[in-house]
Design a protein around this nucleic acid. Structure first.
Length: 330
DNA sequence: CGAGTTTGACCCGCGC
DNA sequence: GCGCGGGTCAAACTCG
């Protein structure tokens, strides 16, 4: 973690004109300091908003989501959900990390939003990252050449790993690692440029499950945790298994689970990708929609049962800020 | 003792 | 070509 070190050491100052959370689509913060928006959004949620879990529960489709978001839109919530369509993947569809939905269920979280990450950044980092991941996954994760620590399997040049769908959302929480019903193993931590808060990397502990997630705190608003899921779970969450097999993460989490889960209410705000986003690159507006819905579905259902059409279509889907759903617990 | 965390080193893509 | 920064690995360590 030399890098991390730098975090503690020469951490760059965070004087940043705008929030430069690289992963976040500019849309998220467009217009003003995120802080403002966030702070504002955090308050005054409309009870009528849908919660993330609600979304998950319901078999939502894109339309539903949109509607839901629209509703909340009016309220001016600020958190956004960003869904990044994975790439081409052909890979098995794993349930989006989102499923873990974990986010939504954080112990102290009060509000959250989701957003797709900007694809740009991801691309760069992703290629190698994914490659490694995939390689590792393919081989049980153990095929690294010990001579060089990081140098694992030599990957072919030009071979680009399909990018996995990503789903990011912000949650207002005091704890960084939100309980989402899945078990995660932390495999790294890095200092985030321009932010005093480090970014933690987690991987699903389930074998064969290559889902990863990054957790970091917004330096603009320390109370906000940004969680980015990458990939889809190939299994159900332990929590889900425990009680409901329907696969709805929300319910299992909310009702049984992880200790912390039951006491907090979480408000998750998701945003649906407007056509504008994906529009940019991949032409099909549907792609974005599909991605989003897919994600949601994944979140709620065991992915094994899901058949996703092609991820390839969904490239980077960025959802403009829009609405937020606020979950009101009984 | 096994599972999970910490953390220094390393890889890699990108921008300059 | 070089440096930066993100991402990952894996040994060492911690904890239950």
């Amino acid at each position: 973690m030399s890098d991390n070190r730098d975090h503690s050491g020469h951490h760059d100052h965070h004087h940043h004109p705008g929030f430069s959370y690289s992963n976040m689509p500019s849309s998220l913060y467009s217009g003003g300091p995120p802080e403002t928006e966030m702070g504002r959004d955090l308050h005054g949620f409309d009870p009528s908003y849908l919660s993330f879990t609600d979304c998950l529960h319901g078999s939502m489709d894109y339309g539903a989501l949109v509607r839901a978001f629209d509703l909340s839109c009016s309220s001016s919530e600020v958190f956004n959900a960003i869904v990044d369509g994975g790439g081409p993947a052909n890979e098995t569809v794993e349930s989006g990390g989102g499923a873990t939905g974990g986010t939504p269920v954080t112990p102290n979280s009060s509000v959250s939003s989701s957003s797709t990450e900007a694809a740009a950044e991801e691309d760069s980092g992703r290629s190698k990252k994914e490659q490694q991941t995939k390689l590792g996954a393919d081989q049980d994760g153990v095929l690294l050449d010990k001579s060089k620590k990081a140098n694992k399997v030599p990957r072919k040049k030009g071979e680009k790993r399909p990018r996995e769908p990503r789903f990011a959302f912000m949650t207002k929480s005091e704890v960084d690692h939100l309980e989402d019903g899945y078990r995660w193993r932390k495999y790294g931590q890095k200092a985030v440029k321009n932010s005093p808060y480090p970014r933690s990397y987690y991987r699903c502990t389930s074998q064969k499950c290559t889902v990863k997630k990054r957790v970091e705190r917004s330096y603009q608003d320390p109370s906000i945790v940004i969680t980015t899921y990458e990939g889809q779970h190939t299994h159900q969450s332990p929590a889900t298994l425990r009680g409901n097999t329907t696969g709805i993460l929300g319910s299992s989490l909310l009702t049984s689970p992880p200790p912390a889960v039951h006491n907090f209410h979480q408000e998750l705000l998701m945003q649906v990708p407007p056509s504008s986003l994906h529009g940019g690159s991949s032409g099909g507006g549907d792609a974005g929609a599909v991605t989003a819905s897919m994600y949601l579905q994944n979140l709620t259902t065991p992915l094994q049962q899901m058949q996703f059409p092609d991820y390839g279509l969904l490239q980077d889907m960025v959802v403009p800020p829009s609405n937020f759903h606020h979950y009101q617990h009984p």
